[in-house]
């Protein structure tokens, strides 16, 4: 522990600040590279204040790829995937926590088992399934595997199980059915768990690469990770264009992060305490 041997506060700060610089520098360098004119990107020594800095790389980015569309794709697919997962998982979690039915335990075990199966096991048959229904290169194909989430059902079931049953029973006495109990009592009470799950869900969709790589071919249906990787494949040495794309794709999630930062970190911290 730091305080025991006489590490001065200054040294500690030095380490923490040094670490922060290591974390921030790649982002800063991406921004600097993205405004460097094409001719001097590969120049040595690297230029921290590039002469003739301009937004040309961003212009080129928009010229060679439908980048706004790709950005929009990622945003709405992320939002749709998050909302779908929230709705389907919360409802199923309610059934598993509050509605006894024959075989419930076994079905829940099936859900848990699917948690362990990695995506790459499913890739080939999923691809074939999509091809059979002529869904290759469609938004639906990107979204499909993310509609249901076993992880979400598991997480939200735990949360619902912690809602005291007396709350539902009081509502039943008032004549409320399951739908009203779910919507008006349970959902408001598990909001923190829903928020946690929403954050994980959105990040997973926003960053997803392998599945879109397999299922999407046309630029207009691409999401950001795929669009960027494809851009890099075409402009191997034009790092200013590639970095411009990287910067543009980091900004939206960064803004979201700045707002939800505390909650994001708290959610992750909690996941390790269980």
């Amino acid at each position: 522990m730091a305080s025991a041997f006489p590490v001065s506060k200054a040294l500690k700060y030095l380490l923490v600040v040094g670490g922060a610089l290591v974390m921030l520098f790649p982002f800063a360098w991406a921004v600097i590279t993205s405004i460097t004119p094409g001719g001097s990107v590969l120049a040595s020594p690297p230029d921290f204040t590039p002469e003739g800095a301009n937004l040309g790389a961003y212009g080129k980015l928009l010229e060679v790829t439908p980048f706004w569309r790709i950005l929009l794709n990622s945003a709405w697919i992320g939002a749709a995937s998050t909302i779908l997962q929230l709705v389907t998982s919360a409802m199923a979690a309610y059934a598993f926590a509050r509605l006894p039915f024959p075989g419930r335990g076994a079905l829940f075990a099936v859900y848990l088992a699917t948690l362990m199966v990695p995506l790459q096991v499913l890739i080939v048959p999923l691809f074939i399934e999509m091809r059979t229904f002529n869904l290759i290169d469609t938004y639906f194909a990107v979204l499909a595997p993310t509609i249901a989430s076993a992880f979400g059902v598991f997480l939200l079931r735990q949360a619902i199980a912690q809602v005291p049953k007396e709350f539902d029973e009081a509502a039943v006495l008032d004549g409320a059915g399951h739908f009203r109990i779910f919507a008006l009592i349970v959902v408001p009470l598990i909001r923190p768990a829903l928020a946690t799950f929403a954050i994980f869900g959105f990040m997973a969709s926003w960053n997803s690469y392998l599945w879109p790589l397999v299922i999407i071919k046309s630029p207009e249906f691409m999401t950001l990770p795929l669009g960027l990787a494809e851009l890099h494949g075409r402009f191997t040495t034009e790092w200013n264009v590639v970095m411009a794309g990287s910067v543009v794709s980091v900004v939206p999630i960064l803004i979201l992060y700045l707002f939800a930062q505390k909650h994001v970190i708290a959610s992750v911290a909690q996941s390790g305490l269980k």
């Binding site: 199966v117 096991v121 499913l122 499909a144 076993a150």
Partner: peptide, 9 residues
């Protein structure tokens, strides 16, 4: 999108 592909795989 999970169980059928599992069996399919």
């Amino acid at each position: 999108f999970t169980l059928v592909p599992m069996a399919g795989s």
